[in-house]
Simulated assay, not measured.
Amino acid sequence: MAAVDLSQTLSDLDKSLASIEAVADMPKLRNDLAELGEEVGAPDLWDDQDNAQRVTSALSVKQSELDRLVGLRGRLDDAAMMLEMAEEEGDADTRAEVERELKKLSKDIATLEVRTLLSGEYDSRDALLTIRAEAGGVDAADFAEKLMRMYLRWAERHGYAVEVYDTSYAEEAGLKSATFSIKAPFAYGTLSVEQGTHRLVRISPFDNQGRRQTSFAGVEVLPVTEETDSIDVPEGDIRVDVFRSSGPGGQSVNTTDSAVRITHLPTGIVVSCQNEKSQLQNKAAALRVLQSRLLEHARIEREKEMNALKSDGAGSWGAQMRSYVMNPYQMVKDLRTEHEVGNPEAVFDGEIDGFIDAGIRWRKQSQISAGS
């Protein structure tokens, strides 16, 4: 890469970062941090633990966002200074070092640029995922378990916390369903493009004749509710059933009726939780899941009333959105964005950022096209 190309790359990256800084509204971000800092310093902060956790979490998220932006700007300024020195002194080694740094910066800024596309009402929240085995019998249950591991590995790679609420194991192998949350800034906005039907094609390990099997699993992604959502769930609107938790193969995990199933009578929504140690904890966790589902239910009803459900993918989550082919060739392909990779095992090990970024860009472009 010639020096003139490096200068142009620097200029392009500077424009991209400036755009991100404008969207982030740096003055407001710093002002918000100052206000949150005052709240954290209040001597009575922990008198209300829920509010204290909200404030400290908000402070941490905003501080990380500011540090990331300031850090990128500093790296870009340093690269510009190093390039200027390299050109003045004819230093090929320094120029090569600048080139390597600009490649890293291009990737980091592109990742942050995707974040600026997340402007939905609930995009900044934690994500609540439910994975269900669909058509395909035991292969579908095994596929559902592979998808759950994929998302857990993705979260682990990024250092995000996960809380598992419910796992319903299939009799022979895999999962009937699982519900868990991923706690990270913009987790919902990021992962919401993963919602839909996933399809797996492979030689079935459960078929004695070694035949190729196609199986399906559904992924649902919802925003985690917050206190400000005011999702009222009257006791008279729910039925609570308790049962014994169970593990793989039906083996008892708990000798008491600690697992909880809640049915919301007006909507028919059913949620369950069995991964906590007590019935009270499981009921509280199940209520949180129910509130997220009711929040999404209310959003969909509101959009229907406003006739806002357009062909941007939001109304067609039941359609196939990604294929994982392991035989007769190796490929994972997103059917909406055309993004594909030839290493399914890496994808199942959590390497899905390329699919997520492509999905976010596709969704934004679809929304723009639908509004034009």
Results as ranks from 00 to 15, higher is better:
Glu38Gly: 14
Gly354Val: 11
Ser124Trp: 05
Gly90Glu: 14
Met150Lys: 06
Pro43Ile: 10
Asp5Glu: 14
Gly71Val: 09
Thr263Ala: 13
Glu145Trp: 02
Lys304Ile: 08
Val162His: 00
Pro205Gln: 11
Gln330Ala: 08
Ala285Leu: 04
Thr256Phe: 07
His297Tyr: 12
Leu36Phe: 01
Ile109Ala: 03
Thr228Trp: 12
Gly37Leu: 15
Leu290Phe: 13
Ala144Arg: 00
Asp78Phe: 14
Gln8Trp: 12
Ala22Gln: 03
Met26Ala: 02
Gly74Asp: 07
Lys283Gly: 04
Asn327Cys: 12
Asp78Gln: 13
Gln279Ala: 10
Glu235Leu: 13
Leu290Glu: 04
Trp154Val: 09
Gly350Arg: 05
Val289Pro: 05
Ala286Lys: 00
Phe186Val: 06
His297Trp: 09
Ser316Asp: 14
Glu351Met: 08
Ser245Asn: 03
Leu295Val: 03
Pro223Glu: 00
Ala80Tyr: 02
Val347Ala: 08
Arg125Met: 02
Ala96Ser: 12
Gly359Ser: 11
Ser372Pro: 03
Met150Cys: 07
Ala314Trp: 08
Ser323Ile: 13
His198Asn: 04
Thr94Pro: 06
Asp123Gln: 09
Thr167Pro: 05
Ser64Asn: 11
Ser292Leu: 02
Asn31Ala: 12
Asn254Met: 14
Pro234Ala: 07
Glu89Ser: 08
Ala308Glu: 10
Ala22Val: 10
Glu305Gln: 13
Arg239His: 09
Gln213Glu: 07
His339Arg: 15
Glu351Trp: 04
Val61Trp: 03
His264Arg: 05
Gly41Met: 08
Gly137Lys: 12
Leu29Lys: 07
Asp232Met: 11
Glu121His: 12
Gln213His: 14
Ala79Glu: 00
Glu39Gln: 11
Val224Arg: 04
Ala217His: 06
Asp334Gly: 05
Met321Val: 15
Thr263Glu: 08
Ser272Phe: 01
Val332Gly: 01
Lys15Pro: 04
Gln367Ser: 14
Tyr188Glu: 04
Leu287Ala: 03
Lys104Met: 06
Ala140Pro: 00
His158Lys: 04
Glu227Ile: 15
Ser64Met: 10
Leu335Asp: 03
Ala217Glu: 08
Ala86Asn: 00
Asp257Gln: 08
Lys333Tyr: 15
Glu194His: 03
Asp12Val: 05
Leu10Arg: 09
Phe180Leu: 07
Asp14Ala: 13
Ile269Gln: 03
Pro234Tyr: 07
Ile131Ser: 01
Gly174Ala: 07
Asp91Cys: 13
Leu129Ser: 05
Lys304Met: 13
Glu84Met: 07
Phe186Arg: 06
Ala2Met: 15
Glu345Ser: 09
Val242Ala: 07
Val347Lys: 01
Thr228His: 13
Leu102Asn: 01
Val70Thr: 10
Ser124His: 12
Thr337Lys: 05
Arg211Ala: 01
Ala370Tyr: 10
Phe243Glu: 05
Leu294Pro: 00
Ile203Gly: 00
Pro185His: 01
Leu29Cys: 07
Lys364Thr: 06
Lys146Arg: 12
Ser230Gln: 08
Ser316Ile: 07
Gly159Ser: 15
Glu134Ile: 05
Glu227Tyr: 02
Pro43Gly: 11
Val347Leu: 11
Trp362Ala: 06
Met81Trp: 12
Thr263Trp: 10
Ile360Asp: 04
Gly318Ile: 15
Asp108Met: 09
Gln49Glu: 15
Ala2Leu: 14
Thr197Phe: 03
Ala217Gln: 08
Val224Glu: 02
Ala173Lys: 01
Met81Val: 09
Asp232Ala: 02
Glu121Thr: 07
